[in-house]
Write a protein that binds this DNA or RNA. Structure first.
Length: 262
DNA sequence: ATGGCTTAGGTGCTAAGA
C-alpha cells in the first residue's frame, strides 16, 4: 500500500499535474493540501472520471484538503473534533483498513505573530485528536504539510533557519509530542544520501519559488508521513518525488510517498 | 539585500505562503 502527501498550492492550477502524476504513480491514497477552493468548486467529476474516489474539505482562497484514492474512502471525517476553527485543514478517512489523517498545519508566519500562537494551539488540539485515534486504529497514518522541519539537517542552511518559523523549539517540541504518542517519521528510516551535500535534493520537500530556490536547493523538509507502530513495522520505503517539481508551473512542494507491505 | 516568486481576488493592487 502506497500513501502520498502533496501540497499542490491550488488544485485549480495543479489538477493536470495531479492527474498526470497519478497515471504514472498508482498510489492507494493521495492526500493533497492547499486546494484553495470551496467545496462547490471542487473538480470532483474530473477526478472521478479518471477512476478515483475523492473526499474534500475546502474553503475559498486559503487552505483546503482532499483525499484521492482508487479504493473506497470509508468513515470520512472533517476537521479536528472540539476545535473551533474556521480554517479547513483536516480530512480523514479509512482506506482498506488504514485510517489516514490528512493535515495542513498552519504556517505560523513568524514567532511574534498571532498566527504562531494559533499554530501552537492548533498542534495541541491535533495531538489530542491523534491520541484518541491511536487508541481506536492500530493502522493509522498522519500525513500532510506540517510546516515544521524536524531537525537542523532538514533545512538547507541550519544557521539561517535556527529558531525561525518552521524550525522553532516550540514547533519541534509539538511535533515530538505527536511522535511520542506512538508515530514514526517514516522518511527518517531510509537512506536519502548525504544530508550535508548542498546539491542533494532528496532530503527536502519544499523549495522557495523565489531566487531560483529549487535550482539552488534552498529547501526544507516539512511534509511528512507519520505511521503508527503496526504500519511502521511494515514500511519499506519513504521518499520524495522530485520530478513534478521540475514540471512547468509546479507546486513549490514535491510529493512524498511511503510504501507499506500490506 | 528579509527581496527574489506564485497564488487568489479582482482589474490595481494587497495578502499570504514558508
Amino acid at each position: 500500500m502506497k500513501i502520498t502527501t502533496w501540497n499542490v498550492n491550488s488544485l485549480n492550477v495543479r489538477l493536470p499535474h495531479v492527474l498526470d502524476w497519478l497515471k504514472t504513480n498508482p498510489v492507494d491514497v493521495l492526500a493533497v493540501q492547499e486546494t484553495k477552493m470551496d467545496n462547490d468548486k471542487f473538480p470532483r467529476e474530473a477526478i472521478e472520471a479518471a477512476g478515483f474516489q475523492v473526499a474534500f474539505n475546502g474553503q475559498k482562497t486559503y487552505n483546503g484538503v482532499a483525499l484521492i484514492s482508487p479504493h473506497n474512502l470509508d468513515d470520512v471525517a472533517h476537521d479536528i473534533p472540539g476545535l473551533d476553527d474556521e480554517q479547513k485543514r483536516v480530512i480523514a478517512a479509512t482506506v482498506n483498513g488504514v485510517h489516514v489523517v490528512n493535515c495542513y498545519v498552519p504556517n505560523g508566519q513568524a514567532l511574534d505573530s498571532p498566527k504562531y500562537e494559533y499554530k501552537l494551539g492548533w498542534l495541541n488540539s491535533l495531538n489530542a485528536y491523534i491520541k484518541q485515534l491511536l487508541a481506536q486504529h492500530e493502522k493509522l497514518v498522519v500525513v500532510g504539510d506540517y510546516n515544521i522541519a524536524p531537525n537542523a539537517a532538514d533545512t538547507h542552511d541550519p544557521e539561517q533557519w535556527e529558531g525561525k518559523i518552521l524550525c522553532s523549539e516550540l514547533e519541534r517540541a509539538a511535533l515530538n509530542t505527536l511522535l511520542e504518542l506512538g508515530l514514526t517519521d517514516t522518511w527518517s528510516r531510509f537512506d536519502h544520501g548525504d544530508s550535508t551535500a548542498e546539491d542533494n535534493k532528496e532530503r527536502f520537500t519544499w523549495w522557495d519559488y523565489r531566487a531560483a530556490g529549487f535550482r539552488r536547493n534552498l529547501g526544507l523538509r516539512i511534509d511528512h508521513v507519520l505511521a503508527s507502530d503496526a504500519l511502521n513495522q511494515v514500511c519499506n520505503d519513504c521518499r520524495v518525488d522530485l520530478e513534478p517539481r521540475r514540471w512547468e508551473r509546479p507546486s513549490d512542494h514535491a510529493p512524498v510517498t511511503a510504501v507499506f507491505d500490506i
